[in-house]
Nucleic acid binder design. Structure first.
Length: 420
DNA sequence: AGCTTGATGCTTAAAATAATGTTGGTCT
DNA sequence: AGACCAACATTATTTTAAGCATCAAGCT
């Protein structure tokens, strides 16, 4: 049997590692691989001298799944919910095992055993984008759910909704879940912006317009998605938001201008953690302003946890002063705010299952079984905003307080449309 | 035994940092 | 078969949201 190239290299590495470990420890017992789930069991009847390592994650690739329905699919990887830290580590390594299915790889178990037909995989959740539906699958071999997400053309799927006798309610408490609805043609379409948007095309819209008018989704009308004689919105002013976002944490970085002796600092100061084998930098905390710093030997320092730009700068000066007590001559150089996290409550609930179908901001990922929030990416200012069904909003990635306010004002009219 | 309750820890996002580890590809 | 390289993961810090799993403790 021809051994795939990546398997050959893997067995080489193992042999090399075993050799060095044997040199260090004469009583060394090689790992049999029985315990490790990150390894895929070798095909029955073949030698166990090499194992099949899981191919690396590849964003998308067309693969043919062997089995009764040899459907062409795009394969993407996804994360797994509710796994322990170690399990997640294993799962990450075992993501996208179908990556190389299309290549002739005679040693790969899942081709030979013909077990990976679409019918054999348990459908866990789905997400609609364009005319493809994403389905998360459960892999019977690795005992991990959500191992891979496959994208099927919709017309090749059996409807998996309430009409299906096998249908079970998702275990999520969020009963707004409509991800099991595969009927793409009946997705609601919204007319937005100036009202001159091309039917079927991307809506032509501006935030300014959104801000001025509360938009109302129009009902599909025959072959067209909306009736052109109708006004695309109700001319009603959107009320000003009742709240503004509060800054929860700022992450900033700066450079002290010289290399630092972390051992010396660790031995002489309080409120520090230093375990270079576990994590390279020294972790230092001060009470006022309440913050934490990661101090690297290169002289770069990351300060996290402050609640305003002014507090953050003050904390940076404080850490520099502490460091200078140990013989360094540092200054605050190249200070830069890297990330601001802010939150606020909208005071109304948001229908996330409808919001995620809005095409205004591109494809939005919403998988309530994995995480109950809907993440909306913003380009200007570049940040990500997570909206929860309860109306809580989290904003991450902002570079300044002004960014946060601007981002919130941009997103508010959009989520306002989806209030009950 | 089976239930409820509370605590804990994980999921998502962002960002910098940097040594070390892993993995697949290419070349000799 | 082995060297080498590129690219990425991992380790940790901060902070919150809501949902879920998994514990322990207490009660019936």
């Amino acid at each position: 049997m021809e051994v795939p190239d990546f398997c050959r290299r893997a067995s080489q590495r193992i042999a090399k590692k075993r050799k060095t470990e044997e040199e260090l420890d004469p009583d060394y017992q090689p790992d049999t691989g029985k315990e490790s789930k990150s390894r895929v069991a070798a095909t029955p009847g073949t030698s166990r001298d090499w194992f099949i390592p899981i191919p690396r994650y590849s964003p998308t690739r067309e693969v043919a799944i062997p089995g009764p329905s040899r459907t062409l699919m795009h394969v993407t990887a996804t994360t797994v919910s509710s796994e322990s830290r170690m399990d997640r580590k294993k799962v990450r390594r075992s993501r996208a095992i179908v990556d190389d299915l299309r290549k002739p790889a005679p040693g790969l178990q899942f081709i030979e055993r013909n077990e990976y037909s679409v019918e054999d995989w348990k459908v866990k959740a789905s997400e609609i984008s364009k005319n493809l539906v994403r389905v998360k699958l459960e892999n019977p071999d690795t005992d991990t759910d959500g191992l891979a997400a496959l994208e099927y053309p919709i017309h090749e799927l059996t409807p998996y909704g309430s009409n299906n006798p096998d249908y079970t309610e998702p275990r999520s408490r969020n009963m707004e879940l409509e991800a099991y609805d595969f009927d793409f043609n009946n997705l609601p379409n919204y007319v937005m912006g100036t009202g001159k948007g091309t039917p079927g095309g991307p809506p032509n819209w501006e935030f300014k317009t959104l801000w001025n008018y509360e938009l109302t989704p129009l009902q599909p009308n025959g072959d067209h998605f909306y009736d052109s004689s109708m006004q695309p919105w109700n001319k009603r002013d959107v009320t000003e938001p009742e709240t503004t976002p509060d800054i929860l944490s700022i992450v900033a970085s700066f450079y002290v201008g010289c290399r630092l002796d972390l051992k010396k600092i660790a031995n002489g100061s309080r409120n520090i953690e230093y375990n270079p084998e576990r994590f390279a930098p020294l972790i230092m905390r001060v009470r006022e302003p309440k913050s934490t710093a990661l101090i690297f030997g290169s002289g770069r320092i990351i300060v996290a946890g402050t609640r305003s730009e002014a507090e953050c700068k003050l904390a940076c000066r404080k850490y520099t002063r502490i460091i200078n007590k140990f013989g360094h001559r540092g200054r605050v150089l190249r200070f830069e705010i890297q990330n601001i996290l802010a939150s606020c409550s909208l005071k109304f609930r948001v229908r996330l299952n409808q919001l995620c179908k809005n095409k205004m901001l591109g494809p939005l990922s919403y998988e309530p079984e994995i995480f109950p929030g809907l993440v909306i990416p913003l380009e200007h200012p570049k940040m990500k905003i997570t909206v929860f069904a309860t109306g809580s909003v989290l904003m991450t990635g902002g570079k300044s307080e002004a960014d946060v306010q601007l981002g919130f004002r941009k997103i508010y009219p959009l989520v306002r449309m989806y209030a009950p």
